[in-house]
Design a protein around this nucleic acid. Structure first.
Length: 596
RNA sequence: GGUCCCGUAGCUCAGCUGGAUAGAGCAACAGAUUUCUAAUCUGUCGGUCACAGGUUCGAAUCCUGUCGGGAUCACCA
């Protein structure tokens, strides 16, 4: 059981015994003591005053004395105003350090009854390469899946690739017109970037056409609709839907280039999927379900034949489900794919990692499925995250104001190389080791930079100021890990057995207690992160741990400590800190180097 | 206009199920290395927690309003 809960129970007993009234648990507030005060846990006694009928100080004093006298875990206490600060006995901390199994599963929950959760993330369009916004999505989705798995869930990671539609037709058309048969091989360009270039090319030419038409007196909307290029793109989409062999062949070829490109990006980013869905295979789903809902009177039809759902009673609007020509819209597909997934997989929850611009969409989706009577409708979850903005505002693909994912990642690696070189950290390493190290550090910096921010919030990325490697950063934490590994190597070299049994008959200093307490909090942190879908909690936690360790490292010797019992304990502590750092970073998808 | 989200130090962010004197990093300045990795550590400077009310013993945190920023309400996805 968790120490906070134990202290809560003890306090209940103390109050009952002292004042003859058993306090309801919600009156008890046990929290970690703030750094500037002495103690490990603090009981806030203000809510208990109505029971004690005494001053805050007297109440705190009485409870403190009772706890210290009756429970060996509580070694000392002090009272400041209405706050009772408790010191936990070294014996408890040492017992925790010696008895706990600090393997790579430390902190994980073991659920006897595993929940299965499907996480959909990434979900790119195939008409252009991935950018920084996709990086946030992928890192969040991947990290969340790891955190939920650590919290005792079975996880299925899926990606729904948007491989069809007008956008890819634009790239195809532009390539046909201006590509001269260029391929990734002939140009030496990554496939997704090559296809993206033609998407941009389409837009440029399209804009020219619109302008021309407007000069001929057409208004903007009409020009946008009637521009020959747009007409052609739409014609191409119709041919694709009619399965015209030539169009399908071109589509397959260009999507193939994109998948090769994405594969490389995903690999460098370090994310993966258990199952990839393609919208070309799912876009017709959902239609029958909607028609069935229409029959059952859940939806209604307008005169032109389009099908709608009325959500005004739920405080929302009316939503289109089928166009007047009978074709599906985005919502129709999502209804269909959700049903398909719950049929195909034995899952308890379906989590969509999608930007907060679609909050409304997912609210509506869940509501519609609920109206249709699916019992699992309420277990659809939207992990909504904020946009990544540049100093000048939102990124816009068509205007070229995007931070390209591949460029950014290689730039991070380059910076990692320069810094490592400058610091002389690469001396004596093979070329292969250098590559691996700088990749680990560069990606560590990028991933931590993204993941330390609360997912819900819009975050800012300034390309002019490169991502830091000092302070509250990924490399700082990685460095702490590498530093500990170095100490452990030195220990082994000098013949110290780092696995030796630790004598618990020693006194701990403040920094040591504080470190142990932080390690002790790890399981709770994972649990919180899983409950709130927030990798940021893990990131903030591991930063705190690394910072505390560095302070400890600075203030105390480990291998040069003369008392062998203390020395062994500090080695043990260091080892466990390294383990918790490694596990934490792993939950963020970040590697922990042994040297850097 | 309706709905939702956000506003904390010069900058980037923590803290938000109410608790102590609001915290980090960056930037600026000053220091620490004969000692286990200085990508580290220590210190100084920096705040009307957007504003105004309210609830409370206690509000950055909860409620109401105002201002400012963003998203969304498509026969786009």
């Amino acid at each position: 059981m968790n120490l906070e809960k134990i202290l809560t129970q003890y306090t209940v007993k103390a109050v009952t015994s002292l004042y003859g009234v058993e306090p309801p648990e919600n009156l008890l507030q046990v929290q970690e003591t703030r750094k500037e005060f002495e103690g490990n846990f603090t009981i806030v006694v203000f809510p208990l005053l109505k029971i004690s009928k005494q001053s805050p100080e007297a109440t705190a004093e009485a409870i403190g004395e009772y706890l210290q006298a009756n429970y060996p875990e509580v070694s000392r206490y002090n009272v400041i105003k209405g706050f009772l600060n408790l010191m936990i006995a070294d014996a408890f901390w040492l017992g925790f350090m010696v008895e706990t199994r600090f393997d790579d599963q430390y902190g994980y929950s073991v659920q006897s009854d595993k929940f299965s959760k499907m996480i959909e993330y990434s979900s790119p369009n195939t008409n252009k390469p991935l950018h920084l916004g996709h990086i946030r999505n992928n890192l969040l989705g991947y990290s969340l899946s790891k955190i939920l798995a650590a919290n005792g869930n079975r996880i299925v990671k899926v990606n729904l690739v948007n491989d069809r539609g007008i956008h890819i037709c634009k790239s195809m058309l532009a390539w046909q017109k201006w590509g001269n048969g260029v391929t990734p091989e002939s140009s030496g360009k990554k496939g997704d970037h090559l296809v993206g270039d033609y998407y941009v090319k389409f837009d440029i030419e399209y804009k020219k056409e619109i302008e021309q038409l407007m000069q001929q007196g057409m208004d903007k909307d009409e020009a946008a609709r009637k521009a020959p290029l747009m007409q052609e793109a739409q014609e191409m989409l119709r041919r694709w839907e009619a399965k015209d062999p030539e169009t399908v062949a071109l589509w397959k070829m260009m999507n193939g280039w994109v998948y090769d490109g994405f594969g490389v990006t995903y690999k460098v980013l370090g994310v993966d999927f258990d199952r990839i869905y393609y919208e070309s295979q799912t876009y017709l789903l959902g239609k029958e379900i909607v028609m069935d809902g229409l029959k059952r009177g859940i939806f209604y039809q307008k005169e032109d034949g389009s099908v709608w759902v009325d959500l005004t009673a739920d405080g929302l609007d009316e939503k289109l489900l089928l166009r007047s020509d009978g074709t599906s819209v985005y919502m129709t597909q999502d209804i269909g794919t959700a049903c398909q997934r719950f049929e195909e997989y034995d899952i308890d929850e379906l989590i969509y990692v999608v930007g907060n611009e679609q909050n409304y969409h997912f609210q509506v989706l869940s509501l519609i499925l609920d109206k249709l009577g699916y019992s699992w409708a309420k277990s659809l979850k939207h992990m909504s995250y904020g946009m990544v903005e540049l100093p000048e505002g939102k990124m816009k693909s068509r205007e070229g104001t995007v931070v390209d994912a591949d460029d950014l990642m290689s730039e991070m690696t380059n910076i990692a190389y320069e810094m490592s070189q400058e610091l002389g950290k690469l001396d004596g390493l093979s070329a292969e080791e250098i590559d691996k190290t700088i990749h680990t550090i560069g990606m560590g910096a990028l991933k931590y930079f993204i993941l330390k921010v609360d997912p819900k919030k819009t975050m800012l990325f300034d390309p002019k100021e490169s991502i830091d490697f000092n302070g509250n950063t990924g490399p700082f934490i990685q460095y702490t890990h590498a530093r500990i590994q170095s100490v452990l190597r030195k220990a082994t070299e000098s013949g110290i057995d780092i696995h030796a049994v630790v004598d618990t008959n020693i006194t701990l200093n403040d920094k040591e207690v504080s470190l142990i307490q932080t390690i002790y909090n790890f399981p709770k942190t994972i649990n919180d992160a899983a409950g709130t879908y927030s990798p940021a909690l893990i990131a903030n936690y591991v930063y705190e741990l690394a910072k505390e360790y560095n302070q400890f490292y600075h203030d105390y010797s480990i291998l040069k400590e003369e008392n062998p019992a203390v020395r062994h304990f500090r080695i043990l502590l260091s080892k466990h800190v390294a383990q918790v750092i490694r596990t934490s970073l792993d939950l963020l998808g970040i590697d922990s180097p042994d040297r850097m």
